[in-house]
């Protein structure tokens, strides 16, 4: 097929999108909503994965000392913990240092911090690093038996919960996205079916003057792709501006919550959305053309 023929067929498809008016708008909106859900679920899953990774890389086990423990007792406890099997390192954190760290994480929003600054409720603690994730529970049990240790916080439990939640979000997302993708294909297919019906006379004439099946079918494929791409552009724009806004808002309100940076994430996500829209549109029209276009 020559380039000028492709140009002619594309022009025909664009005109059909315009002629279909409201139906085209409905199809583009459906694609936009479907892809928006896909984008939101992807962003949620990716950020939760990121959060899990960040937490995983941080302290694995925290040992909190009893409030009445003396400095000597705490030093001895740290030494005993260091000597435990699978423990690769221990970092003592005084209650004052813990408060400083908290102040750093709260950043500019110090209203909450102000209330605890007058009376520091944080205990002295020790961050315990373990060689393998699989050895954490054993280390936790051993640290709990060390004198002067009041309680042990196992960060891995939180990480595990987060991992499970991320997995659930992924499965739910997969189901939702599949259902919406199906709806998108059906709506685009329906739009193309109406276009086929509106142009049935033209199709008959095209056949009479010697148009090949490809020549007749291509405008419908292109029309589906345009509708899909149109919806993807709408959802892409919403995600682009929406996530940047959200990122700024989260950074201001919950500064210690690590969100993925828009600059790294959004270009890839928008590219994926555009490709998905194009594919869903072409797939919807291909199915419709196969079912309703008798050429």
């Amino acid at each position: 097929m020559r380039l000028r023929t492709v140009g002619h067929l594309t022009a025909e498809a664009v005109r059909s999108v315009q002629d279909n008016g409201l139906l085209s708008v409905a199809a583009i909106s459906t694609v936009a909503v479907s892809l928006l859900v896909l984008a939101v679920i992807s962003l949620l899953a990716l950020n939760m994965q990121h959060l899990t990774r960040v937490m995983d890389a941080k302290v694995q086990v925290v040992a909190y000392f009893a409030p009445k423990a003396t400095a000597a007792q705490e030093t001895a406890a740290v030494e005993r913990i260091k000597a435990l099997p699978h423990v690769t390192g221990v970092k003592y954190v005084s209650r004052a240092a813990a408060l400083r760290q908290l102040a750093h994480e709260f950043g500019r929003d110090r209203t909450l911090l102000h209330q605890v600054e007058t009376h520091n409720p944080l205990p002295d603690s020790a961050d315990v690093f373990v060689d393998k994730t699989g050895n954490i529970s054993g280390a936790v049990r051993a640290v709990q038996k060390v004198p002067s240790v009041a309680s042990v916080h196992d960060a891995q439990a939180v990480v595990n919960k987060l991992t499970n939640f991320t997995r659930a979000v992924r499965y739910l997302g997969l189901f939702l996205v599949s259902a919406l993708a199906l709806a998108t294909v059906i709506v685009i297919g329906n739009t193309v079916r109406v276009a086929v019906y509106a142009r049935r006379e033209q199709i008959g004439i095209m056949k009479l003057v010697g148009a090949t099946n490809g020549f007749i079918r291509w405008p419908f494929f292109i029309e589906g792709a345009i509708l899909g791409l149109g919806g993807a552009m709408v959802s892409g724009a919403i995600v682009w501006w929406g996530y940047r806004w959200l990122n700024h808002a989260v950074a201001a309100l919950v500064p210690f919550l690590p969100l993925l940076a828009p600059a790294h994430l959004l270009p890839h996500l928008v590219e994926t959305l555009l490709a998905s829209g194009l594919l869903l549109g072409a797939l919807g029209s291909a199915i419709s053309v196969r079912r309703h276009l008798n050429v």
Binding site: M1, R2, R4, T5, H8, I205, M206, V209, G210, A211, T212, F215
Partner: peptide, 11 residues
């Protein structure tokens, strides 16, 4: 012009 476009005759 339609049959000519279909037959990919030059513009």
């Amino acid at each position: 012009a339609f049959p000519l476009i279909v037959a990919e005759v030059s513009p």
